[in-house]
């Protein structure tokens, strides 16, 4: 049973590290603010969540704290990504090579 938990913890560490690396690679490779937010805000949070899952399984007394931190991260992560994206849109940063654009101008970016 203990070995089983250890294996899950190690798998979660590997997956979490992989997603963190993907987040950084995406931040460097993607072309503009909005797509970079996808890479860091999402895949980065993914990585941290998997590392916390590993902590929850690897440390028998720490599962409560691990789940609590995951909950907080899942609530606050999207709020920060939305704040940066909305601010970038309001000061009118361009979207490189957009396929479609339903939001042409907001009232704030016109004035």
């Amino acid at each position: 049973m203990n070995l089983f938990l250890q294996v899950i913890a190690i798998l979660a560490v590997v997956v979490g590290t992989l997603f963190s690396v993907v987040g950084v690679v995406g931040f460097i490779r993607l072309p503009d603010v909005y797509t970079r937010l996808h890479a860091t805000g999402k895949v980065g949070v993914f990585g941290v969540v998997f590392l916390l899952v590993a902590a929850a399984f690897g440390e028998p007394l720490g599962w409560g704290r691990g789940l609590f931190l995951i909950l907080l991260l899942v609530i606050t992560g999207p709020a920060t990504a939305h704040a940066i994206g909305s601010a970038a849109n309001r000061i009118g940063l361009p979207r490189k090579g957009a396929e479609r654009d339903d939001l042409v101008y907001t009232s704030k970016s016109k004035s």
Binding site: V22, L30, H38, R95, E99, D101
Partner: peptide, 17 residues
């Protein structure tokens, strides 16, 4: 998203829906 990021051709078709 991980596949898009790691793809050498970077096949993003971004836009606002």
């Amino acid at each position: 998203v991980a596949r898009i990021v790691l793809d050498p051709a970077l096949p993003i078709q971004q836009g606002i829906v």
